[in-house]
Simulated scan of single mutants.
Amino acid sequence: MPTVNQFEDLQAWQKARTLSKAIHQATRDKAFQDDYDLRRQIRRAGGSVMDNIAEGFGRGSRGDFVQFLGIARGSLTEVKSQLYRSLDNGCFDRLVFDELYTQASEVGRMIDGLLLYLNNSSNKGRRYSKGAEKTDDER
């Protein structure tokens, strides 16, 4: 896997961002106006996936990244459950459900791939590199 210097270069983050945007679009429909709590929760969980990928990467250590990818995976599973609730409550149709569920599954495979890579890597992360440039937070 090539060296990634910023979280925006991670394909898993890019796909999670696309999923978050698609969820936001799908929940603009009038059907969600009547279920504010579900709309808010599925949007937050969708955003949490991309945010935790970014935060884990930003921590600069393999262990932290693995931990935050696990949290992102949990949020993604929450999104999938909420997709079922949205379908069952008539907030969107099967076509929208299938598209969002497929996107969520793709993000999950990407997170799993990152986890596999990190768990088999001997690289401890940026934080432990010789001559690593310290971020403003680490100074």
Rank of each mutant, 00 (worst) to 15 (best):
A16P: 07
F57D: 03
R85I: 11
L83P: 06
Q41L: 02
R139P: 02
R39E: 09
D51T: 10
A54R: 09
F7V: 10
I42Q: 01
R94D: 09
I111F: 02
N5F: 14
G90Y: 01
F92P: 12
E99F: 11
R39Y: 01
A12Y: 01
L38F: 05
V96K: 15
T77H: 12
C91G: 13
I42K: 00
A31G: 15
G108E: 03
R94N: 06
N123E: 14
Y101E: 13
G70Y: 04
K30F: 09
G125T: 03
E133D: 08
G58P: 07
D88Q: 09
V107N: 06
R59N: 03
N120P: 00
Q103K: 14
G46T: 02
R127T: 05
A104V: 00
S61Y: 09
D34S: 13
R17I: 12
R139S: 06
Q103P: 07
T3F: 12
D136P: 13
Q41M: 01
F32W: 08
R40I: 00
G108M: 07
S86V: 04
D137Y: 13
D136Y: 13
A31D: 11
E8M: 05
I53N: 01
L76I: 07
R43K: 13
V4E: 03
M1H: 13
R126W: 15
N5H: 12
L69F: 00
I42A: 02
F57R: 05
E106S: 10
T18C: 04
T3Y: 10
S81K: 05
S105Q: 09
N89Y: 12
L38V: 05
E78M: 07
Q67F: 06
L118H: 10
A26C: 06
K80W: 06
N89C: 10
F65Y: 15
E133A: 11
L76Y: 14
I23M: 06
R73H: 12
R85N: 12
G108R: 08
R85L: 15
F68Q: 14
T3W: 07
K124S: 13
K30S: 13
D112V: 08
E78N: 07
Y101N: 15
A22R: 10
R28P: 02
D37N: 14
G58A: 10
M110D: 12
R127G: 04
N5Y: 13
V79T: 02
F68N: 10
E55I: 03
L118E: 09
Y36S: 06
V49Q: 01
L69E: 00
W13P: 03
N52F: 03
